[in-house]
């Protein structure tokens, strides 16, 4: 089963965030609870953990891109 990973809303007023870094690469295994990527917005660095276990199948953005809340960032094919 494939799961879309979306830009999370991290505070009441957040509308978009910068994808600051990928902590996993395409093709890499991801465990539930592992940090998948980091977001930086308004000087806040947030580690975003995967809610799924599986393989990181595709990423649609690179580090430095600004992404709207709820936009699809990546796909994980779940175990």
């Amino acid at each position: 089963m494939k799961k879309n990973i979306c830009m999370p809303k991290l505070s009441e007023k957040m509308e978009s965030g910068i994808l600051a870094a990928w902590n996993k690469e395409v093709g890499e295994k991801v465990e539930n609870g592992e940090v998948l990527f980091e977001i930086e917005t308004e000087k806040v660095v947030s580690e975003v953990e995967s809610q799924e276990s599986g393989m990181l199948e595709a990423v649609y953005f690179e580090a430095g891109d600004e992404i709207k809340v709820d936009e699809i960032i990546a796909v994980i094919s779940c175990d």
Partner: peptide, 8 residues
Amino acid sequence: GNAQSIKK
């Protein structure tokens, strides 16, 4: 100047 880090 202020900044934050969020984890879990």
